[in-house]
């Protein structure tokens, strides 16, 4: 399926994946993230329950300390 991930077109080798699976596929190993799917916030405890399908717009924002 084709999705948009962080403003870039991505081809994912599956028809549907959970957020948790998508993070594993893309090797996002960072701990502190903000995730949105089609503009809707997905909190960490929902990563296994929210699905990404064809055409979805996914944002995975990685946060590090410092300021």
């Amino acid at each position: 399926m084709k999705i948009v991930l962080n403003n870039r077109d991505e081809e994912i080798n599956a028809e549907v994946v959970t957020i948790k699976e998508l993070l594993e596929i893309k090797n996002f190993t960072f701990r502190m993230l903000v995730v949105k799917v089609n503009g809707v916030l997905v909190k960490k405890d929902r990563y296994e329950h929210v699905y990404v399908t064809e055409g979805d717009n996914v944002i995975v924002l990685h946060l590090v300390s410092g300021g």
């Binding site: 502190m32 993230l33 903000v34 949105k36 916030l41 909190k43 924002l61 946060l63 590090v64 300390s65 410092g66 300021g67």
Partner: peptide, 15 residues
């Protein structure tokens, strides 16, 4: 903020 947990809290709250 300095701390990433605080950053996440603020971002999620604003969203």
């Amino acid at each position: 903020f300095d701390d990433k947990h605080e950053k996440q809290m603020l971002i999620e709250s604003v969203i």
